[in-house]
């Protein structure tokens, strides 16, 4: 959109540039993606909920699970989206700063960079960090079959996990190509690296085009235009025939459809 404005209005005065600047500034103020976002629950509530999620996974013997969180108000989520962030939880031996080793889950995330939301990094944190800042104390847990868990452990502990990361971030990244990536697409790519025993992203994308059904993103066109102008992490140049992206729901459906899911659990504040 910005490119379109620039090319179509080469003679227009500075007003439009100023307006775009105002929109961009406003978007940055609203994005709020820096580390340490506001909390919506007391620390004790976050801590207790995170521990409950951990114990639920442990009770089911999960070595690797897929977790989701609600990072925006539920009422604002577009049709078909129930969560805003997805990551792997991996049963681990955790080394503490005081030199002890304790059992628990580490969370393997793809996070947008603070200050550069169109760029991402791979970050390991822990359940209490993962759920800090959520809008609802609720999560879905996908526990893959034991064989898929074994293969996921192999991939996550290998160079393949990082090799599959594309730092060029779009919040609606098209999972069928390599141009941009978001957290759900990275999760999907890691899953398929484990399923197909490959680190070749072209093979993974071909399999995803063949078997994975992405979530259509239904948004008011004007809002989409606004986002394209004001949000650096909203890019659709990788899309054809409508906007589609991977979501927690479509990943769950994919695993379910191909008998790769051992358990699906919901943990919510009572």
């Amino acid at each position: 959109m910005y490119e379109y404005l620039r090319t179509r209005n080469t003679c227009t005065p500075k007003l439009i540039v100023v307006l775009i600047g105002m929109l961009l500034f406003g978007a940055q103020a609203q994005a709020g993606s820096a580390a340490g976002g506001e909390s919506h629950f007391r620390a004790e509530q976050i801590s207790a909920f995170a521990k409950r999620v951990e114990k639920t996974m442990a009770a089911h013997g999960a070595r690797v699970a897929i977790l989701a969180r609600v990072g925006r108000p539920v009422a604002d989520l577009p049709d078909g989206f129930h969560y805003t962030h997805v990551a792997f939880a991996v049963y681990s031996q955790i080394k503490t700063t005081d030199g002890r080793s304790i059992p628990g889950y580490a969370i393997y995330n793809l996070y947008q960079d603070a200050g550069h939301p169109d760029h991402s990094s791979l970050v390991v944190d822990y359940p209490a960090d993962f759920f800090a800042g959520v809008y609802a104390l609720k999560t879905d847990i996908l526990i893959p079959t034991p064989e898929l868990q074994r293969q996921l452990l192999r991939v996550i502990a290998s160079d393949t996990y990082r090799k599959l990361h594309n730092p060029a971030y779009s919040v609606v990244a098209n999972p069928y190509n390599r141009k941009f990536q978001n957290c759900t697409e990275h999760t999907l790519d890691v899953l398929n690296a484990a399923i197909y025993h490959t680190d070749d992203i072209d093979v993974i994308k071909a399999d995803e085009r063949a078997y994975f059904k992405a979530q259509p993103v239904k948004i008011n066109p004007l809002k989409m235009l606004a986002g394209m102008v004001t949000m650096p992490d909203l890019k659709v140049t990788d899309q054809k025939h409508g906007v589609r992206t991977a979501s927690f729901t479509t990943i769950a459906r994919y695993l379910r459809q191909y008998d790769l899911l051992a358990d699906e659990l919901v943990v919510a504040q009572q």
Binding site: G32, A35, G71, D76, L77, A114, A226, G227, T230
Partner: peptide, 28 residues
């Protein structure tokens, strides 16, 4: 577009995959 932007920021893109880092120690 600007009028719709607020609803957008709170209602669309970030929902599909908001992936920002938080830390219990860093977030109040």
């Amino acid at each position: 577009v600007a009028g719709g932007q607020q609803a957008m920021a709170g209602g669309s893109m970030q929902h599909a995959g908001q992936a920002s880092a938080y830390s219990v120690q860093a977030s109040g």
